[in-house]
Simulated assay, not measured.
Amino acid sequence: MTDTPTPTAAVRKQPFHDRLLAETSAERSALLSIPIIQEALSGRIRREDYLSFLTEAFHHVRHTVPLLMACGARLPARLEWLRTAVAEYIEEEVGHHEWILDDLAASGANRDASAASTPAEATELMVAYAYDTIARRNPVGFFGMVLVLEGTSVALATRAAETIEASLGLPRNAFSYLRSHGDLDIEHTGFFERLMNQLDDPDDQAAVIHAAKRFYKLYGDVFRGLRAATPALAVAA
């Protein structure tokens, strides 16, 4: 009879965060390859493109705190440690939608008109899916959206801000959202990784992976539709 080999320390269970990245890599690559994103990184976009991006960012970022609050409220008692983390996220995210309105104004858009505008269909659907995930499915799935938005910021935000600023000649104070989130989300990624590696329930893990795949598609649709949106360009006299 042959003895079953004993697993060594080198053969350990893959941390969930690593598996999450691996299982969503195709969706992440599809998002990052969207033409308008590549054009932004090479400085080949118009001011209207940037204003459209900021406007749609406002329409989803203003839901970040309400979504976090809804998620925290629906987490079960066994995930009290995650509710504490949600409270930390809330403290970090309060008021960020106002930064975007400031950037819009600095870029030549009408601040009030931008705030009063209607989100594009893709943005509205992404936000609605986030609320639905929390209310109807597993609230832990909301962290799939966190992965997508923060991961995309880390990959793109600071680089995009530098190239867009140089190519469009906009003032530096028109990029507070991109620059701050590129840096801030780098800090968040380590925190997020630790949280995900604490998730040990298979259903919770499956919910995050499922939601992340959906959010990569939904967020990609926001970028794919930017040139169909009409930003509030008029500046009050």
Score class of each variant (00 low, 15 high):
7 P>V: 02
9 A>W: 15
12 R>Y: 12
17 H>R: 03
18 D>T: 09
19 R>V: 11
19 R>C: 12
20 L>W: 01
20 L>K: 04
22 A>P: 12
24 T>I: 14
35 P>L: 02
38 Q>Y: 08
39 E>N: 13
44 R>L: 07
46 R>C: 11
53 F>R: 04
55 T>P: 02
60 H>M: 02
60 H>F: 15
62 R>S: 06
66 P>G: 06
67 L>N: 10
68 L>V: 01
68 L>A: 02
69 M>A: 07
71 C>G: 02
72 G>R: 05
73 A>H: 07
75 L>R: 06
79 L>T: 03
81 W>V: 02
83 R>S: 03
84 T>D: 04
84 T>R: 00
85 A>Y: 02
87 A>S: 12
89 Y>D: 01
91 E>R: 15
92 E>C: 02
92 E>F: 05
94 V>M: 10
100 I>S: 00
103 D>E: 09
105 A>Q: 08
106 A>K: 14
107 S>Q: 11
108 G>R: 12
110 N>C: 12
111 R>N: 12
111 R>D: 10
111 R>L: 12
113 A>T: 03
116 A>W: 09
120 A>L: 00
122 A>M: 04
124 E>G: 14
125 L>D: 05
130 A>W: 11
130 A>K: 08
131 Y>C: 10
131 Y>W: 11
143 F>M: 15
144 G>N: 03
144 G>H: 02
151 G>V: 03
152 T>W: 11
152 T>A: 15
157 A>V: 03
164 I>C: 15
165 E>M: 15
165 E>L: 15
166 A>Y: 03
166 A>E: 05
170 L>I: 04
170 L>K: 11
173 N>Y: 08
173 N>R: 13
174 A>D: 04
174 A>R: 09
175 F>W: 09
177 Y>G: 07
178 L>M: 12
179 R>M: 12
190 G>Q: 06
190 G>H: 11
191 F>P: 03
193 E>N: 10
203 D>P: 00
206 A>M: 06
206 A>G: 07
212 A>Q: 07
212 A>E: 13
213 K>Y: 00
219 Y>A: 12
222 V>Y: 13
223 F>H: 14
224 R>P: 10
234 A>F: 01
